[in-house]
Each structure stands twice: as structure tokens, then as C-alpha cells.
Amino acid sequence: MQIRTRNLYLIPYLTWILLFVVAPILLIVYYSFFNVDGHFTLGNYQKFFTPVYLKMTLSSFWYALLITGISLLIAYPTAYWLTKTKHKQLWLLLIILPSWINLLLKAYAFLGIFGTYGPTNKLLESLGIGTQQILFTDFSFLFVSVYIFIPFMILPIYNALEEMNHSLLDAANDLGASQWTTFRRIIFPLTLDGVKSGCQAVFIPALSLFMITRLVAGNRVITLGTAIEQHFLVTQDWGMGATIAVFLIIAMAFIMMLTRKRK
């Protein structure tokens, strides 16, 4: 009896998962087998393995890797420093605050900030470096992407650092470990789970970025996300768009496996 009522409570969750997780994925896989005219085909998969899409996949991975790497480099020290400060909650709030603002608005703001006559170039000018092209370059793309994703990297690392048992550090200290050894042998291994979930939270969305590639990178950076958007909205070649999405899902599942927490 008890088990039956418990199963009843599961119904809303199961329906949710079925309708909004399983069904969409199945639909994507289903659509990936049809060409523009609505005929069954394997051609989309064949097309994915042509140089154009392979190159696009490689460049998507490369940029996502760069974004994740830079985020991690900045986020780890920040999170570490955060655990040492007095007003932790306030600092944390300040770091999370920008993620409350709409993504599109932030991207548009950078059009002005990085523009030829924008504040960044004014600063460079007054420093004697002179006006540079910042907007529509790899630099601006990476900068804005890192800016957008970094809170998602800082939070899990911060939590892992907070949960760490500090008496272990004292023990290491007592036993004569240098600061670097302590970090390498104790702090980093203990916060590895935080780093992993941070990387997941950044790498996976970075792989399918599309709006920033147009607004901030002026379509000079083409990712798989851009191609999906094009196929669904402009070409209406849903089959090809779905095929790319299938590969993205596979890639993401693979990354989840690589970075899963070991118990």
C-alpha cells in the first residue's frame, strides 16, 4: 500500500521527464533522418562528416575549451580568495549579480564598450596605445563568453572549498608540507569535484553558443550552435539542424561521463 502511494507521487515527475526530456530528444533523433523534402534519408549524417561540419565541430570544441580553461584559471583563485574574505555573502552576491541581467542586454552593452569610439578604445588612446579593433575579434568573443560563464565556474569551486575540512590543512602544515604541496596534494584533490561540475556548467553551454557569435564576434566565429540556428530558422532544413543537435547531445553525454563524480 505504502509503495503504491509512493509510486503515485512519482507520476508528475515521470510525466515531466517523459514530456520535456525524453520526448524532445526522441523527436530530434527522428527529425535527423529526414531531408528538406521530408523523405527518409541518412544523408544528413553523411553530410555531417564532410570537411565543413567537421571543421565547425573542431572550432566549436576549441573555443569551448578556451572559454572553459580561461574561466577556470580566473575562477579558482577568485573562489579561493572568496573563502578568505570577511563579507563572503556580499562578494558572492556581487559575482552572481550580472547573471541576473538578460544575456542579450549584456551582449549589446559590449557593442558599445568595445566599439571604435567606445570607452575601452578611449582608454587605450589615452595610454598612448591607440585605437584597436576589439569588437568582432576572437578576443572580444572569448572575453564576453568568459564574462558570462564565470559565475557558473566560481560557485561550485567556492562550495567545494567551503566544504573542505580545514583541520586537514593544519595537519599538513604541522607535518611540514610547503604551501604548494598542501595545495597540490590536499586542496586541489579535495575540490576536484567542484572543478568538474564547474567545467561541465561552462563547457556544455559554451559548445552551443550562438547569439554572441553574431553580436560580439560578427559571425567571424562559427559554432555548431550557429549552424543549428541557421538550419531551423533560415533554411528550414530541420533534418540537418537536428543531426547537428544529435552530435551535440552525444558530445555532451561523453563530457558528462568524463567529468562525473567518483564516489
Binding site: V36, V52, R220, A227, Q230, T235, Q236, D237, M240
Partner: peptide, 16 residues
């Protein structure tokens, strides 16, 4: 649709 899709494919290649 087919030709339009081809136009878009070429345009995408050009962007890349």
C-alpha cells in the same frame, strides 16, 4: 527549399 538550403550552405562556408 533545396536550392535555398544550398545557398545557405555556401553562405555558411563563406562565413567560416
Amino acid at each position: 527549399k533545396k536550392m535555398l538550403s544550398h545557398y545557405n550552405e555556401l553562405f555558411l562556408e563563406f562565413k567560416m
